[in-house]
Design a protein around this nucleic acid. Structure first.
Lengths: 334, 334
DNA sequence: CTGAAAGCGCTTACAG
DNA sequence: CTGAAAGCGCTTACAG
């Protein structure tokens, strides 16, 4: 690889297959076949082509190839907000898995805005991506553009599912909550609260629902302790204050993500809670380890693999995949 | 936009310009010109073309356009590790700025591996990106591939600079450190330590250098208190223990990023420090607000704009831009 | 196994 | 202002 672009240095035009053919004294058809391995070419010819190509620093123009083959080897990835700490790991897993199979990734950050998302989907289709992987920005407002896209190209919902009928790859959200609550109950806790986010976000909504269902079954006599906030510190503070005022018996708080959880921990400390309150987060971000916060590690690599498999359009591949998380118990729940 | 792909539903082939031309009873040249606005077309003709295009759900194939125009309207973005909390905000800023000017972004996560990075750069060149924006993975091992790439396409170093001679857009790393130390000194602190990361990472290296220079000038009689670690909790713990053992007089710790800072805060608390030690981080991630951690907010939007401007290749645009940060003082330094 | 030709879907000189 | 033609750089039937 070291000298690949060596000869194409400086001057404007890049080396094309035509020049390689001339250099090797062969037709461009033969050069193409020798390089792509599409059909059998005599070994000595292949060698001759390789030599010329390397010496000239030839690399096939993938734009031209795409136009001809009608494949771009490119995936469109639409993320609602990459500064949400869950997504970087997902983006990394998807990009890595894609690269492994020769695909590149066009990324779009939808700014949590369904209108931006819609426009982005059109752009991706214009660019003829082979497939679209999307975590929809909104539970209802993203539906239409998602469906339109799915009509044109394999489209996989990743992590956030808003249309059950279309392909999706998701993570079960109740299993880790069951696991955390189970562990804490055997540790003697029995007054659980949940701090979530806006219900238009699919995963937070699912987590809240899972929590509510579990509570109704486990503690039918208790009132449901659920508060919704945003990712800001002030919002978490309000949530903690509300919980402690309305339900002072609370001895465990399940948070919909690590950021909320960290702030809840902080607020509990600074408000001089005499009682020990267990706290857990979601997403197992770097901060969870740093803070000793119990959190939920989602299987991003498996999620990425399943998403790419579903996107490949290969018949027989599962278009609906549900995966499970690992709860990482740390000091915040002990 | 709502009905754009409406008619292309279902069956394989997408609508091409040829079909729009037939539908409108015009030549494909005219259709192209009417739609791109490249040259003056009679208003009624434009209207006729628009109608046909909309009705048929036509959208130009950008692969074909790129082959013809030799522009892809695509930027290659190479990031060393998107799970490093600084990068999501940068990726978001770049993607947003790019979209605003009609460019898409092919993203690659180099896994902190110069070999992966090199291969990624070749792939981006194969894909004929208009420019490359890169935060190099390694201070020396990334040099060669960076230079090769720069020979073919406008290539801008973003945030991390390893080759001063090539274009870059960076953030001054000493200004915020000067600012933090200055503020803390007027608060009476005078024994500063620094916890950094591996010196092969350009920014951490610069921060460490800035700290060292400042200390030599301000406290020439003191020994230099610098420890390097990794992003893990265990590493930060060791760092804190080393500082407190070797330099027990330390009353302020500047950390090279927020993750390290949070862990340092934790370790200080749990080790029952009787003395109050100020702590600051870098990158002003969500966690800094949640923890009340003083941190350095880098101007990612301006960084992105400057990078895109430099990548545009427009003559007169600055190819070397240095920007400044804002220190967000919070309770961790009071 | 190799070559000449067609064509992917556009844009843009070149004529008129 | 509009159209017929060339061509971007490949891959792949079609012949041989």
């Amino acid at each position: 690889m070291e000298v690949m672009f060596h000869m194409s240095t400086g001057l404007a035009g890049r080396i094309t297959i035509r020049e390689v053919a001339a250099d090797a004294g062969l037709s461009i058809s033969t050069v193409s076949r020798a390089l792509t391995g599409a059909r059998v070419v005599a070994p000595d010819i292949v060698e001759r082509v390789r030599k010329s190509a390397n010496r000239l620093g030839y690399r096939a123009d993938s734009v031209a190839r795409s136009l001809r083959t009608q494949r771009t080897d490119t995936l469109g990835l639409v993320i609602p907000d990459i500064t949400n700490p869950f997504f970087p790991a997902l983006v990394q897993a998807i990009e890595h898995a894609a690269r492994t199979q020769g695909q590149s990734v066009l990324i779009v950050d939808a700014d949590n805005d369904p209108q931006v998302e819609r426009a982005a989907l059109y752009t991706l289709l214009d660019r003829r991506v082979d497939a679209v992987l999307i975590s929809p920005a909104h539970a209802t407002e993203s539906l239409e553009a998602l469906a339109e896209t799915a009509r044109v190209v394999p489209t996989i919902q990743v992590d956030r599912v808003i249309d059950e009928a279309l392909p999706w790859v998701r993570v079960n959200q109740s299993q880790p909550i069951d696991e955390i609550v189970g562990r804490l109950r055997s540790g003697g806790r029995e007054h659980f609260a949940f701090v979530g986010q806006s219900s238009t976000m699919a995963t937070s909504f699912e987590r809240e629902g899972a929590f509510a269902t579990l509570m109704e079954n486990a503690f039918p006599e208790q009132s449901l302790r659920v508060v919704r906030g945003t990712l800001t510190a002030a919002s978490a503070d309000v949530a903690v204050q509300q919980i402690m005022r309305d339900w002072p018996e609370t001895d465990a708080i399940i948070c919909a993500n690590d950021i909320i959880a960290v702030r809840v921990l902080q607020e509990l400390r600074s408000s001089m809670q005499r009682r020990n309150v267990a706290v857990s987060g979601f997403d197992d971000t770097l901060i969870a380890e740093a803070m000793g916060l119990t959190s939920v590690r989602q299987p991003v690599d498996a999620l990425a693999s399943a998403a790419l498999a579903a996107a490949s359009g290969v018949p027989g591949v599962s278009l609906h995949v549900e995966l499970f998380s690992t709860v990482i118990f740390r000091t915040s729940t002990s």
